[in-house]
Every structure is written in C-alpha cells, then in structure tokens.
Design a binder for these strands. Structure first.
Lengths: 354, 354
DNA sequence: CTGAAAGCGCTTACAG
DNA sequence: CTGAAAGCGCTTACAG
C-alpha cells in the first residue's frame, strides 16, 4: 500500500467556510434540525447542492452515539421443517455486520401452530419499544392488526417471506408466489407428453382461501391455461402433516389415477412425497420447494428433480439492511423487492447460495 | 429513533488503561508496528485477547487518511456481445460503495481480439503502481506472465470470469466451467428421448486446447458418459463469428444430420444460433449461456429454452470487495469462490439478478 | 438562532 | 521504546 493523500472531498468544514457560518449550523441545516434561521438554512443548502456534498457515512455513525434497536419476529424452526433456520441465518449475518455500526438486533420467535404465541410475542416486542421491526407473517389477520399498531406507533416495519394484503410496510422482500408456480409449470411442461397427467400436492394444516400455497397453485394452473394443449392436472390437499396421513392420501390418489408423470408439491414438504415415491418405487418426476436438508437428501438421490428456491437467508438479510438504511440514513427502500426464482437441481445445488 | 447509550464495548482506551501504557502504544502493539518493547507488546496483546477486543472499523478507516487504489482490467464491450457490460456494472457498483471508504478504482479495458492491447494495458497499469488489481483474463500466456509480474512486485491481484492454470491469485471469483456444462447436460437429459440427438456448438475465433468452451463441453459429455443410455452427441466448432459463417456451418450440420432435438451452445453467442433456428423454422430446444440483451430477446420468444448464468455483475463486485477487505483489513479471502450456476428461463428472467 | 468546544475510536507525526 | 497531542468528519450538549 502506498501512502497518498485522499483527494480533497468537500466536507462540512468547507461548506461552513463558504457560508460564513459554523460547522454546527451547517449540520443543523443539512439535517433539518431545529434552530436555524430560514435564510441561513437556505444559503447553506444552496452551497451544499452546488458542491454536491456527500456526507461521510463513517464519520456520521462514529459521531452518533446512538444504538438502533431492531426486533425480528419469525417462526421458530420445528422438527418438521428446518426451513426457518435460513432466515435466522440471514438475521445473524446482518447482526454480525451491523454490530460494528451500533445496531442491536433482538430476534423473537413464534410457533407457527399457535396464534397465541404470535400475539404474545408481538406484545413483548411492542413493550421493548424497538426502532424498527422485521416480520415474517403467518397468521394473516393477527399480522395485519400488528402492522396497524406499528403504523400507529410510528415504528417502521419490513416484511419477508410472504406479503400481507394491503400491505403498507416500509418494504417487502420475498417471493412472488404466483410467479414461482408459473415457472414450475413451465418446467413441468418440458417433462410431460400430452397424454401424461400432473398432480399438484398441497400439504398444510390449514389451507384456507388466502393461503400462500394456493397462489402457487394458481400460477401453476395459469401457465397451462395459456397453452393450446395441456396435460390433465389433478390435485390433492393434504391437511395433516404426519407421515402416515401423507402416505395414505398419496396412496389413494395413485391407486385411483394412472398416468401421473409429474408431481408438483407447493411447499418445502416435498421430501415427504419423495419418501413415499421412493418407498413405493413410483417413477415420476418431482418438483418442490426449498433448499433444506431433508429435500437435498432426495435431490441428491435423484428422487427430487427440481427445487424452487428463493434465498430465504438473503431475504432476511436484505430486509434488515433495508430497515437499517432507513433508520440510520433515511434511505427509503422500494416497497417490493421480489427475490429471484432459483432452480436447484442435483447438478448445481453444491454451489447454490440460499 | 430513541436515544440510547451504546453498550460499553472495549476500545483501545480501556486496554491502555489496563496495560498502563498510552493508546499510541496499544495501537502499535496491535498492528505490529515497530518501536514497542517485546514485553510491552506481549502484555498488551494478552489484555487484547482477554477482552476479546474488536477494533472499530469505522474509526479505523476514518483515521487512516490513506487512499487505496485498485486497477481493474477487463475486456471492452464489443458490438458482437454486450456481455462485458455486466462485470463493468459490478465494478461501478463497488466503486460507488467504496468511494465512501477512501478507495479509488481505475477501470482499464482491453480488446479481446488484440493481444497487443492487453499487453499495452498491463504495462500502463503497472506504471500507475496500484495497490491491487482485478483481472478478467483472456490470453492465457500473457495473463500468466502478467500475474507473475504482479507477484514479483508484491501487488495483490484477484481474478474473475475465468481462472488461470496454476493460479496463485489472492482469489478467483467465477464459474466452475466444467460444472456448468455438466448441469446443462442434466437439463438436456430431461428434454431428449433415447433416439434423439444432441448438438454441441462452440463458436469462437480461437478454440485451442485450453479454451474455456472445451471445459464446458467436457462437463457436458461427462454427464452423459455416466448414464447407462445416452443420446448421440454431435458437435461443431465454428471459428468465425459473423452471421454468415455461423449460418453456413449450422446449415451444413442440419442438412447432414437428422433427429437433432437439443442444441447446446457453449457461450453467450447462443442468440446467433437462435436466429438461425428461427429463420429456418427448426423446432429444437436450445440451451446456452449468459443473461444479455441479445439472448433475452430470444428467450422471451421461446426460441431459447434455458440460459445458464453465473452472475457476472456479482463476480466483479465480489472480486473487488475481496481485494478491498484484504488491502484495508488484511482479511485473506478463500482462494476459490465459485459462483452459483443459475438457470434462467422465460418464466423467471424478470426477477433474475445478474 | 448561532458558535465554540468536546467527543466518537482510532492513527500518526513529533518529541523525548 | 513511549507518551501526549492533533486530527479524521461528523454530532451534540452548552452557552450566549
């Protein structure tokens, strides 16, 4: 490394000199802090824009002895699916990076099978008076109500993983579910002949009218609706998530229907379907969701053909960064930040970044 | 935002107090600067490790009035392919971000069709005595020789886009070409029946023994070598890149060979093949490389089925960040950083991040 | 409404 | 070999 003078960038000192005021006044003018005469402020801002002054972010954060506190609320990882480890990893990554910058992140978790736990945690978070909140919502009604409260209390919040109806969050960083279903159908279209059948499988304890899974199904069906020729599409909703129930439902379907060539599972539970197909030695192609250990095992074996993945680690990481940038520097993020729709196979999973 | 005291992190002041020395001495000890008694140094470092002291990076860079200068050398974008705009974009992104941190980035370009231009630019770069270099190599021999010079002059350098044989760079951030060919074959395997044929197309002015394209071809073939049944694989090398030459070669091949179901083009020139197939109304599936405007046009139309992409923007961005971290903080990056192998289709290109 | 001064956590001449 | 002090570019009480 050679020593070299940093080229002379304008700082608040230079602005103060030109405006014939003190640096304190410049600071107040720039940040719209109270106690500056209108005329002075305008004069200073004039010079600021003339010189295209860019504040030194490092010095700014160094001088601001303020801790920003961000609360995160996501489902707790369960034995049934390790999916929620990924967002947590993204949170931890952001935490590590931002701890340098005087940001404290407090992670909270709720049980996806318990509305009560969700409501309880939102209460605790509100009491802690955080500067910002990151939320991965599950229970729509309660989440909407929570977001309204945040709005009222003037606490900015961002969403990840799935969006909320009429969402007014600072930002949503996550998948467009319809599009991912649409892409899955496009992939499936390469795998079938006109006479083949496709089976859509939804596995979830609650599959109501708004459910995420239905948006994916909708995208999937829409793709084929647009084609001149399309394979027959069957679908089953499995409302219990234990192995036995899933096996039973699938057995029934495969007994009644012949010619199923492709199975599309609308969430990360695709591994349970793969298990069934392996056990019963069915030769069908399988498309599902999410880069989690359970699924990767079957992907490697060739029992799962395609996994659609949407970078849950990065979703959480980006969500927090968006919040941080807003809180620290007032940078307003775009309202929607849709994640790429990644196709993971047994030949590229080894370099995938979740 | 609420005001809140930042929790008391240990700084060099606290260490100085405990060690009964001045903060200057602490600084010297921590950074192995000369002029500290061995005993003093050890004592200080002892306390440093006891307290698990983490330096404040912001303060560090603020106090270091040093400009780090990074030179980048990549091919210039040509009329024939817009590919090199992407790495340039990554460089610009890094430049914008790092300008805050006292880093200056000087981009240089060479003509991919002119060894002379490459050699000339490396000379200019060396004369400018940069603190670090990022290189996207094309001419293997000259690049190796340049990298040796950097080594000798003690200028750290990183590579992107393609690796060099026996590479001793600080870091390589880019694709594993073999793997991307392997993945392409895996995709192709879903698209063919045993009786179908696959055509590999290499288009490049120079296809010598080490060429990148051959590594992809190798990966592609290796996939099918491992299968029990495999389609027949044909291949053509097109050594001229004008439209007419390409059309002629393809015409010849399609005249002589029937039953070609899938065409695999080993680089970004896949759009020229798509053009030909469209014009001659051939109904084959097409796999190629790179997220560039020319290709996207055919992807949208359905003339290209899959584009393999490896985030060239991010490659350049990450390469520079790796260099920066090394120069500024002595963080040694992993020697190889392989990019994900992304599959882009007409149903997910709209959310792809290059 | 404004300025002078202290301080954020470091680095770096300078003096001894 | 070591310490005291100035300074990086900001923010923020404090005083007037």
């Amino acid at each position: 490394m050679r020593n070299k003078e940093r080229e002379e960038l304008v700082g608040i000192k230079e602005i103060a000199r030109r405006a014939n005021v003190s640096i304190g006044t410049v600071d107040r003018a720039i940040h719209n802090r109270p106690g500056v005469a209108k005329k002075t402020r305008e004069h200073v801002l004039q010079i600021v824009s003339e010189l295209d002054y860019q504040p030194n972010l490092l010095a700014q954060r160094l001088a601001t002895r303020k801790t920003l506190r961000i609360a995160t609320l996501i489902p707790i990882g369960s034995a049934e699916t390790s999916f929620w480890q990924a967002p947590l990893q993204g949170i931890e990554q952001a935490r590590t990076e931002l701890s340098q910058h005087g940001i404290v992140i407090d992670p909270y978790f709720y049980d996806q099978d318990s509305i009560g736990s969700f409501v309880e945690k939102t209460g605790i978070i509100l009491q802690s008076e955080p500067d910002g909140i990151l939320l991965a919502p599950s229970f729509i009604e309660e989440s909407v109500s929570f977001s309204r409260t945040c709005k009222r209390l003037n606490i900015p919040y961002v969403l990840i993983d799935s969006d909320l109806p009429n969402n007014e969050s600072l930002n949503y960083t996550g998948p467009d579910l319809f599009d991912s279903g649409y892409l899955s159908a496009h992939l499936a279209s390469y795998l079938v002949q006109p006479e083949d059948k496709i089976l859509i499988v939804n596995i979830s304890r609650e599959i109501d009218g708004h459910h995420h899974l239905l948006k994916k199904e909708d995208g999937f069906r829409t793709y084929f609706d647009k084609q001149q020729t399309a394979p027959a599409i069957r679908k089953i909703d499995i409302r219990k998530t234990d192995v036995e129930s899933i096996d039973n439902c699938l057995s029934e379907e495969f007994r009644d229907t012949t010619g199923i060539k492709v199975v599309f599972v609308t969430n990360s539970r695709v591994s349970t379907v793969a298990r069934y197909l392996e056990k019963t030695e069915k030769k069908v192609l399988l498309i599902g969701y999410d880069y989690i250990a359970e699924n990767l095992a079957y992907l490697k074996k060739g029992m799962i053909d395609f996994l659609i993945c949407q970078k849950p680690v990065e979703q959480a990481y980006r969500g927090i960064i968006a919040l941080y940038q807003y809180l620290a520097y007032g940078i307003v993020p775009p309202p929607k930040e849709f994640m790429p729709i990644d196709i993971v196979t047994r030949t590229n999973f080894h370099v995938y970044r979740n």
